[in-house]
């Protein structure tokens, strides 16, 4: 009995392992697809992906001064805070929305190529890393200007980015599979994220909540932001934030693999 159970779980692991590991080996495929996705967005423009950079720069240029007045904050503190927060919020929320669409936008390939499904999950995460890197063109000079760059910060940021990308990957698997079957989910996710933008300290900071600041601890996206923005702003994230992220990764990745194992045989038909 036990032996049978063990054999079955080994078989399950093998299916998951095969798809995700073989997908990883097809690095050249998802790299090409991810980059093509970005070029597609800005097709027939002269400066291409740099439009994304200009959008971010312009927005920050106006939001910074106006909201620092609105909230009665010191501009030298508020400006880098809101710049970093906004870029990271954009990175994460876009990753989640596009994660939900990861398989839907790939239906042509799913129905015509025998690639492992994980290729489309990797493609989604990598595409968003590319966009984040573009936005760093705005952030890096700003951080140097406000003298916030340190070796510790860079190292912590890299660790954080690794964690958040893994989390994003897990979310992509879960939402990607669910959305392929139930096409209402991407709409729902977009709506929830729009709402979360106002509930999460992106434009405002935690200390503005005063005595109620403990409330943000229950917002998981707050921890996502903290893990990435604190290092960039010259601080160290709280241990709580790392714990929340790691637990979320564990739960969501298990859930994602479970969904994948259960639906693998039908994914191609849902596409």
């Amino acid at each position: 009995m036990f032996h049978k159970q063990f054999k079955k779980s080994l078989f399950t692991l093998n299916i998951i392992n095969k798809d995700f590991f073989n997908g990883l080996k097809l690095f050249y495929v998802w790299r090409v697809l991810a980059w093509a996705d970005i070029l597609q967005r800005y097709k027939r423009t002269v400066i291409g992906p740099f439009w994304g950079v200009i959008t971010t720069a312009l927005l920050l240029l106006f939001i910074g001064p106006v909201y620092s007045k609105l909230f009665g904050q010191n501009l030298t503190e508020y400006f880098p805070y809101v710049a970093v927060s906004y870029v990271i919020w954009n990175f994460f929320s876009t990753l989640v929305v596009e994660g939900a669409n990861s398989l839907i936008i790939s239906t042509d390939y799913i129905k015509n190529m025998a690639w492992p499904f994980s290729v489309y999950f990797y493609r989604c995460v990598l595409r968003n890393i590319f966009v984040l890197m573009h936005n760093f063109i705005v952030l890096v000079p700003l951080l140097f200007y406000f003298n916030l760059v340190s070796l510790q910060g860079i190292l912590l940021f890299i660790v954080g980015l690794g964690l958040i990308c893994t989390l994003g990957f897990a979310i992509t698997i879960v939402l990607g599979i669910l959305s392929l079957r139930y096409r209402d989910i991407p709409q729902l996710v977009t709506n929830l994220l729009n709402m979360l933008f106002f509930l999460t300290p992106v434009l405002w900071s935690v200390n503005m909540l005063g005595a109620s600041s403990w409330m943000v601890q229950f917002n998981p996206v707050f921890h996502v932001l903290e893990v990435l923005r604190r290092p960039l702003l010259g601080g160290v994230p709280e241990i709580v934030s790392y714990c929340v992220i790691i637990i979320s990764i564990f739960v969501l990745l298990s859930l994602g693999f479970y969904f994948f194992y259960k639906t693998k045989k039908e994914l191609a038909f849902w596409a």
Binding site: A36, Q40, K43, R44, D108, Y109, K111, N112, M113
Partner: peptide
């Protein structure tokens, strides 16, 4: 390639 036009970008 099963489909002849897969991934072709008109631009």
């Amino acid at each position: 390639f099963l489909s002849m036009n897969l991934g072709m970008d008109p631009d």
